[in-house]
Amino acid sequence: MTERRRFFPARSVQQVPGQTVGLQVRLRPTAAPAAAAAAEVVCTGWLVPWLCAATPELIAVDVLPDGTTEIHGIYYDPETGIDYGGLESSVWVGAPVALDGTGRARPIPGDGFVCTELQINTTYYTAYPGRHFMALAPGGTWQAEWDSATTDPLVAASGHRAIVAGSTLAVAALDTETGDDTIETLTATAYSGATQVAQLVLRTHRIAT
């Protein structure tokens, strides 16, 4: 049987029986954690997929005196049956993210190049550049109103409709019949909290007979 041995300290830890040992702890103050910075709200501008697909010879590109870029359609394409003249105007802010073979800006949105204004012909026989558009402002909110609205500010007199859902703005335009020459304007403003970060404009044009 193995002998079990017990070990004891050479001297007692507590020198004076019946007394307690007091410890004093000093805490060094630390700085409060910094509040997380709010994410910057950036607006995409108008997103128009069909516009991005236009071949260079079917659109005109001009740099305006204020430094913005104006792009509009100029030709009817017999091969596709698309009348690019339906895009009456689009205004772009910033430096282009893509250029065509002659050095002109391509109508492609990207970091620092956004479409802030659109004017389209909504007369039923002109489909280009489409009837559905969108803009995003992640982390922000939108306020929008048609100048021709009667009761609901998101619905134009002709039936064009804007849809606001959090940081997303969508527009569903309708084909319009010929009649009086009419332009209806949607103004949409993006906010970060109470601060305006962007304003977009969409004009729909009904051609007179």
Rank of each mutant, 00 (worst) to 15 (best):
T44S: 15
D66G: 09
A190F: 04
W146P: 00
R131A: 01
A39R: 10
T126G: 00
R28W: 09
T189I: 07
T209W: 07
Q19F: 09
L154M: 07
A60G: 03
A173R: 01
I183N: 11
L58Y: 09
T195N: 08
A135P: 09
D180A: 13
M1G: 14
G193P: 11
T204R: 09
G110P: 04
G85P: 02
R4H: 07
T189D: 02
D100G: 03
Q199A: 08
L23C: 07
E117K: 15
M134E: 14
L154N: 03
A188P: 04
G193I: 03
P96W: 12
G94P: 09
A95G: 05
V48W: 02
T30H: 12
L64C: 09
F133D: 00
A10I: 08
T44A: 06
L64V: 06
R161H: 02
F113Y: 15
V61E: 04
G101V: 05
V97F: 11
W146H: 00
T123S: 11
A165R: 15
Y128G: 01
P138L: 08
G85D: 04
A157R: 13
A53D: 13
E184G: 09
Y125K: 13
M1D: 12
T20F: 10
Y75P: 00
T204Q: 10
R28G: 06
A162P: 02
A31C: 06
Y75D: 06
R206V: 01
A135T: 10
V164T: 08
L136R: 15
T168F: 09
A162K: 02
A173E: 02
P96I: 10
I108M: 14
T195P: 00
A135K: 11
L174E: 07
F113E: 06
L200R: 14
V41H: 06
G94S: 08
P65V: 10
G101I: 01
F8L: 13
A36N: 03
L58W: 14
T178Y: 11
T20C: 07
G101A: 15
E117I: 00
A31L: 13
L58S: 05
Y128S: 02
T182G: 00
C115A: 08
H160G: 01
A38K: 13
D111A: 12
V197R: 14
G179S: 12
Q24N: 08
E70S: 15
V16W: 07
R6W: 15
V155C: 01
L154P: 02
W92K: 13
A36Q: 10
E177A: 13
F8Y: 15
L136M: 14
A127F: 02
F113C: 12
G179N: 10
D181W: 04
V25P: 01
S167K: 05
E57W: 06
R26K: 11
D175E: 02
L47G: 07
T168R: 15
P96S: 11
T68A: 09
R5F: 09
A95C: 04
D111G: 04
L154D: 00
L200E: 14
I74W: 04
D100N: 12
A190E: 03
L118R: 10
V42Q: 09
Q15L: 13
M134K: 15
P129F: 08
A173L: 12
T182E: 05
W92N: 08
T102M: 09
V42I: 13
